[in-house]
Simulated assay, not measured.
Amino acid sequence: MDESSNDKCIFRITKINEQRQLRAALAHNLRLENTPNINTGLSHSNIHAKGCSTIDACMKRYESSIEGLKIRKNAVLAHEVIITGSPDHMNKLTKLEHIEYFNAAARWLIELHGGKLSNLLSFSVHYDESTVHAHILLVPKINNKLNSRAIIGGARGRLSELQTEFYERVAKRFGFTRGVKNSRAKHEHYSELKNLRSNLRTTANSLALAKIEHAKIIDELDNSKRVLTHVQNELKQIRRLEYTALKARIAQLEQNISRTYRTR
């Protein structure tokens, strides 16, 4: 199959090993942080699963899902899955077809992750980036245990198997094709992308703080100028008063001298 095909389905799955990493993913997916490279004017079109629109609500689902489980120190706590497709084909689908595509993917993923809806932590569809896509977070809970290996596996070929299964079970009926197996095409790893985004956010925050500090300095400078102008005006007034008082004293002395001479 031609690797340049513009109707490929896209399926990405990554591991989440820490709760802070899970919270960061939720903050991004729910648009609760400053996210670069999005069209904020379209963010109102984003869709979030009912009951999964806040970090607290999603974390409550997570806590409920893992309640009673023994969590290993190096356990994978969740999987994040990104579902989309080649931009050309995604643009051909209607919004209803987008939702049907993402819902079908979510149902397949829930089945893959133990079959319980409670293992679904969040489901967000983003319309405010260049290509519509879905972020789906799930707990890898199989037979009442956290078992990411049972889903993703340890073999290098397992991801390719999952991509094939996703194509056959979900994407095929929406007109997508499967990408070339074991393709050498380079895809930027999602964790690297997140790091780049994190660095960009840090830079943006630093720039924002610098702008705030600059504004403070300008305000302080303006205040200093106003104070200096006030002091200069006060000095001028004092000088005028001193000059007037001095003239009055001289006039008084001249009068006294004049009287003294007249009395002689």
Rank of each mutant, 00 (worst) to 15 (best):
A105Y: 06
A105L: 00
A106L: 00
I110S: 10
H113T: 00
G114P: 07
G114D: 05
K116F: 04
S118F: 07
N119T: 03
L121I: 05
L121E: 04
S122W: 10
F123A: 03
F123S: 05
F123Y: 03
S124D: 03
S124F: 04
V125D: 02
V125M: 01
H126G: 12
Y127V: 12
D128I: 09
D128M: 11
E129C: 13
S130M: 03
S130C: 00
V132H: 05
V132P: 15
V132K: 05
H133W: 02
A134K: 01
I136L: 09
L137H: 00
L137M: 04
L138N: 05
V139H: 03
V139I: 05
K141W: 06
N143A: 10
N143Y: 07
N144D: 12
R149F: 05
A150G: 08
G153N: 10
G157Q: 09
R158A: 07
R158T: 07
R158M: 05
E161Y: 11
T164C: 06
E165H: 15
Y167R: 02
E168F: 10
R169P: 00
A171I: 08
R173E: 08
G175Y: 07
T177F: 12
T177Q: 15
G179C: 09
V180Y: 01
N182G: 10
N182Q: 08
N182P: 12
S183G: 14
R184V: 08
A185L: 07
H187S: 12
H189D: 14
L196H: 11
R197H: 02
S198Y: 08
S198K: 15
S198Q: 11
R201D: 02
T202N: 09
T203K: 14
N205M: 15
L207T: 00
A208L: 04
L209P: 01
A210S: 09
K211R: 13
E220S: 08
D222A: 14
K225E: 15
K225H: 14
V227R: 15
L228A: 15
L228C: 12
H230Q: 14
